[in-house]
Simulated assay, not measured.
Amino acid sequence: MTKKFLSLLAICAIVFLANCSRIEENNDPIIGLWSQSELIVTENSSKQTIRKEWIFNDVYLGRYQEMDGTTIVLKTDFNWSKQDDIYTVEYKGLDGKPNNVITIKATDEGSYLQKKDGATLAIRE
């Protein structure tokens, strides 16, 4: 009798734990790759492209990186959160980089991230 009871208890525990481990699906529109590119012309008329990328994932984390041409010059992780339609991006390990407070704006050409001051942070790729 004791073995049957323990077996039943073990099965119940497995079923209970299996049901608790389901992760809620996150389909937030910010998930994906957003970028900003800037062409810089130096004093000797050479051109260089600086590209910034934000990669948002579905567990409120992401990766930020800056590239000079094809060379990654800065890479860090970030946390993101959403309250109403306002997103906050908090960078890890970058003491001088302030948080971004942004919203998603849609146009006929596509979507972009807009900062509090109205400037464009990045466009969706």
Rank of each mutant, 00 (worst) to 15 (best):
I102Y: 00
E53K: 11
T88R: 09
L17G: 10
N79G: 06
L94D: 13
R63G: 00
F5D: 15
G118Y: 08
P29T: 01
K3A: 10
G62A: 02
S35L: 06
K97N: 08
K3D: 15
F78N: 00
D77N: 06
E24M: 01
T103C: 09
D84A: 14
E25C: 00
Y112G: 00
T70E: 09
I14A: 13
K92V: 06
V59T: 14
Y87I: 15
A106P: 01
S37R: 11
K82S: 14
R51C: 01
T88G: 07
D95A: 10
N99F: 03
W34M: 03
L6R: 03
Y91H: 02
N26A: 04
Y64N: 02
T120M: 14
S35W: 03
K47S: 08
A119G: 14
Q48V: 10
F5A: 12
K115I: 01
R51S: 06
I40Q: 12
N19Q: 15
D68T: 10
S46V: 08
L6V: 05
W80Q: 06
L61C: 07
L6D: 08
E24C: 01
L61V: 09
I72H: 09
E90S: 15
I86G: 13
T120A: 14
V89G: 03
S111Y: 07
T49E: 08
W54P: 00
Q83S: 15
S35R: 11
T71Y: 08
K3Q: 12
I72L: 08
S111I: 03
E25H: 04
K4H: 07
R124V: 07
T71A: 03
D117V: 09
A13C: 10
I123M: 08
I72S: 14
N44C: 07
R124Y: 09
K52M: 05
D58W: 06
I40H: 14
T76V: 04
D108K: 15
E38K: 15
V41H: 04
V101H: 13
I30L: 02
G96A: 13
F56S: 02
E90I: 10
A122Q: 04
E25W: 01
W34A: 02
A119S: 15
T49D: 07
W34P: 12
L8A: 03
V59M: 05
L94H: 13
Y64F: 02
L33P: 12
G62E: 00
K115R: 14
L33H: 12
V89H: 02
K116H: 08
Q83N: 14
K4Q: 15
Y112N: 00
S111V: 09
Q48E: 14
K105E: 06
N79L: 12
E109F: 06
G93M: 04
L121M: 10
S37Y: 12
I86D: 08
S45I: 12
G93Q: 04
L74R: 05
G62N: 02
K3S: 09
K47L: 01
T120F: 04
E53H: 11
G62W: 00
T103W: 01
D28G: 02
I40A: 13
K75G: 07
D77Q: 02
